[in-house]
Design a protein around this nucleic acid. Sequence first.
DNA 1: CGAGAGTTTGAGTTGAATCAATTCGCGTGG
DNA 2: CCACGCGAATTGATTCAACTCAAACTCTCG
Lengths: 250, 250
Amino acid sequence: MNPLKAKFERYVALEQAEHDLLDHLVRTDARVVPAGSDLIREGEGIHFVKLVLDGWGCRYKLLEDGRRQIVAFLLPGDLCNPDALAVGEMDHSIGAINELHCALIQPELFDQACIESHRLRQAMAYDAGAMLGMQREWTLNLAARPAFGRIAHMLCELHYRLAAIGLAVDGSFFAPITQITLAEATGLTPVHVNRVVQDLRGRGLLSWRGRQITLHDPTRLALLSGFSPRYLHLPRFALGATPASQQLPA
Amino acid sequence: MNPLKAKFERYVALEQAEHDLLDHLVRTDARVVPAGSDLIREGEGIHFVKLVLDGWGCRYKLLEDGRRQIVAFLLPGDLCNPDALAVGEMDHSIGAINELHCALIQPELFDQACIESHRLRQAMAYDAGAMLGMQREWTLNLAARPAFGRIAHMLCELHYRLAAIGLAVDGSFFAPITQITLAEATGLTPVHVNRVVQDLRGRGLLSWRGRQITLHDPTRLALLSGFSPRYLHLPRFALGATPASQQLPA
DNA sequence: CGAGAGTTTGAGTTGAATCAATTCGCGTGG
DNA sequence: CCACGCGAATTGATTCAACTCAAACTCTCG
C-alpha cells in the first residue's frame, strides 16, 4: 500500500491520474533505515523528499548540554521534507525510532506533481497545515501543561493519529518507543515519566507492556489532558473507519 | 511599503510581474485591529489570507484553566493564513498585541498568484518552511530550556527577526509587549519573568524601558541561550543590511 | 547464564509557582 | 497642575512539581 495516497484521500477525492502520479512518486526509490540511526542530520543539504512508509521516526534537535529534544513523531504516511526544493539545509535531524522504511522522491518530481494536479497541491497544503497545527499544539503542550497532562496528551495524539491510519484498534496500538523516548519528547526526565506512567496505570487508564500500548478510556484521558483533536486536521474519519474511532472524543 | 514583497525578495529575486502581483494582492483590502482584540478566533471559518502590515500579533490558544499560551509572534510581513484555501477552520486564535494593520487577501487571488508565478510559489514554500522551523524551535525552547535561557532565546529571536526587516538597530527595537506577554509566550509566570529580566539587566545584557528593548551584547546572549539563527531560514541579509546585522552571531 | 537496556524505587534538592503586598508609571479628570 | 486609578513591575516568603543522584530490579536476547 501507498500510505501517502491513503492520507491524501482523507483530505480530497483523488482521480485516477492522481493515483498514478502518487504511485509513481513513491515507486521511485526506497531505503531501509536501521532503528536508532538518522535519516538526515541538522545542517545537511536536502536531496530528497522522504516519505515514511513503515516504522516510526522523530524530528529532534540536540541541546548544548547533549540532551536531545524530540519535537515531532513521524508515522507512516508522513513526509519528512515536503519543502525540499525551497529549503536549503536541515534545521533539525530526523531519526528512525524502529527500523524505518522510507521512499526517496526526487524533489523536482515532487514539485512537478504539484504543478500537474491542482488537487494534489491542495492536499499538500492541507498536509502542511496539519503539520503546523500539530507543532503548535506540541508547543502549547510542553510549555503549559504539567507532566501528567503532557504525557496523557501525547498518548492521545499518538492514539488518534494511529487510529486515523488504521494502526490502532480499541485504543490499543504498537509503539516502538521506550519511556526514555517519551521523556525526550515531553521534555521530562525518564524517572518522572515513569512515575506518571505508573499513575496512569494505577488509575486504570493505561496498559503498556513491551511495545504495546493500550488506552482503556481514551475519552476520559482526553478530558483529563485537555486533548481536542481539532488541531490534527483530520476532518472526518474515512468510510472505512476503524471501530476504535467510535471511542474517540468529538 | 509592501512588507510581503520585501520579505519574499529576501528569499528569491522577483521580476516586475511578480512585484505587480504582490502589490495587487496587498492593495485589495485592509483593516485596522485595535490592540488587545482578535483578528480571528479558534473554531472560526477562514475567509481571508491575512497579512500583517504593521504592528505585532500573536497566535495563541486558551487552556482549560483560562490561561492563554502564545505559540508565535507575528511581525510585519508575516502571513496569518497562507493555507486559507486548504484549511477549513482555525485551530488557534490570532490576537493583536498593539494596534495592528493587516491586509485582507482573497484566498482565491492568493492561490492564483501561486499558480501564475513559479517563483512566488517557491517563496511561499520557503516562508512556510521558515514558519515550521520557528515553531519547532519554540517547541524545543519551551520544553527544554530553563527560564533564563528561554527568555534570552526569545529575545534573540525577536531581535533577529526585527533586524531582518529593518526594525532593530544596534540591538535596540520597539516591542509593544509587557512582561506579562512574555510570560504567556514563554510559559512562565509574570513574577518569574520579572526576576529573570532583572537578572539580565543586572548582567548588563538587557535594557527594557517602556516599549523599548535593547540587547547590549546579542552575541553573548545568543551564546548563553543556545540561540542559533539557522532555524529562522534567513539565508543572508539583503544588500541593504542594517548595521545591526553586523552584530548578529553567525 | 550473563550483559545491557530499560524500568522501578527512594531520598534529597531545586527551579519555578503561588500567594500577598507594595511600588512605579502614566493617562485622565477635577 | 495635581490627585486618582489602574495596569505593570517589583519584592518577599512559602510551597510544590519535577529534577538529581544512586541503587536495585527485570526483562530480553545472544
